[in-house]
Nucleic acid binder design. Sequence first.
DNA 1: TTATTTTTTTAGACAAGTCTAAACATTTGA
DNA 2: TCAAATGTTTAGACTTGTCTAAAAAAATAA
Lengths: 219, 219
Amino acid sequence: MLSQTEENYLKSIYHLEASQTKSVSTTLISKSLNTKASSVTDMLGKLADKKLVNYKKYKGVNLTSKGKNIAVKIIRKHRLWEVFLVEKLNFNWDEVHEIAEQLEHIKSDELIEKLDTFLNFPTKDPHGDPIPDAKGNIRNKKSILLSNAKKNVLYTISCVKDNSKALLQFLDKHALTIESELTVVDKLDFDESITAKLSNGNTLTLSNKICTNVFVTIK
Amino acid sequence: MLSQTEENYLKSIYHLEASQTKSVSTTLISKSLNTKASSVTDMLGKLADKKLVNYKKYKGVNLTSKGKNIAVKIIRKHRLWEVFLVEKLNFNWDEVHEIAEQLEHIKSDELIEKLDTFLNFPTKDPHGDPIPDAKGNIRNKKSILLSNAKKNVLYTISCVKDNSKALLQFLDKHALTIESELTVVDKLDFDESITAKLSNGNTLTLSNKICTNVFVTIK
DNA sequence: TTATTTTTTTAGACAAGTCTAAACATTTGA
DNA sequence: TCAAATGTTTAGACTTGTCTAAAAAAATAA
C-alpha cells in the first residue's frame, strides 16, 4: 500500500509527462511538489525499487504501466470527488481543489465505485477535465488552446489548464463556464489578445495569458 | 494543525474517558490503538506539550477542554460520513466504519457543514450513536442497556455499544435495526438471556452478551 | 574544446512515530 | 510490610520523508 506522499509523486509525474514529450526531470517534480530536488532524487529511487517508475540517474523518470495505472486511479478519485463537492454540496468549482487533494487518498475501491454510481457516472469534472473510467480509460476529446482557435468558428470551452483560483474566478465572473460557447471575432497581433463573442451576446477581450490556459473544442 | 495520529489518540482517549470514570491509562490507550505502551507514553508527552491532555507520569491522562473539543469534532465528522455512506452510497451499516476512519481526518470545516446540510442535519449515525452539532453539543437521549430493560414495556433500540461486525450482522439479520421496537417478554435468570417480542411479531431469545451491547430507550 | 553554469546526486542531519529491551513505579497479596 | 507482579517510562534504534551543503554530472557558451 502506497503512502499519500508516494501517490502524490506518481500523480505529479503523470501530469508532467502529459505536458511533456520526454522524460520528467527531478527539478520539474520538485517545483510541482514544492520540495527540494534532493528529496525528489530519494523518492525516485524508492519508486523505482517498487517498479512504479523507470529511473536512470541524471536522465529523469517515466512511469511504468504499473505506476501509470495507480496515477490514473488517483486522478479518477480526485475528479469524482470534485463533482461530488460541486454538484451535491454546492461548492463553487474554484473552491474544490484542495479538498479533493485530500479526498483522493481515501483507500476503498468500493467507495469510489459507489460514488461514481451516485453521481451517475460523470465523464468530466467541474473544470472540464475528463474522468477516467474504473478501468483507467480516458475518453479524450481533442481540445485546442483558445489562443490557437480560428476566427469565426464556433467553439465550446472544454477545459482549463491552470487550476489557479484567480483564473477560475475570472472565468466564472464572465460566464465562461465549461460547455459555454464562443466565437473568436478578432485577434490582436500586438499583445496576442483575442476578442470573443459569447452565446449570451457579450463581447469580451481575453489576454494571451487567459487564452493559453483555456481549452476549446470545435462545436 | 494536528496529524492524523494525534487526532486518533485524542479520539481514543475521549472514548475511553466516556466508558470510565477515572483517568485513562497508558495500557488502555495502547490496546485501543494497537500500539505499544512506550509509544503511547511518547505521544502523551507531546499532547501534553500542546495542552490537549493533562498528563502526570504514572497517573494516566484526561483530555483538556481544548482536547475534548477536537475529539468531538472528529467524532462528528466520523458519524456524518457514516450517514453519507449508508444513506447516499447504499453501504450497509456494518461496512462503513473503516472508511469513516479515513474520512474523519479530512480537513475542512466548510466541507463538514455542507455535508451536514446535504444530509439534512442528522442527529444519529447508522449505529444509533448521537452526532454532535457544529458547536460540539451532543443531544443525549437517555438510553439503558437492553439487559436492564423491564418486562412488558415497549422500547426502541437507540444505539449499539460494540462496533464489531459480528454483532452488527447478527442484529441486521434479525431486523433489530435502530428505531425498531421490542418488548421484553421474559428474562431467564440462569444465563441472563432475555426473550423479546419484535413489532414484526417475531419472538427472539437474546444472549446476555447481546443485551449488554444494545441500548434502548422507552418508547 | 574547455570553462562556466545549471542540474542532479550524495552525505549527513532532523522530526514524527514506531519498536524492543531495560529500568523504574505502583499495586497486589502473602 | 515487603516481595512479586504488573504497569509505565526511558534509552536507543529504525523508517519515512524532509532538509542543507557539498560533490559530481550534464548542458551551455565563448
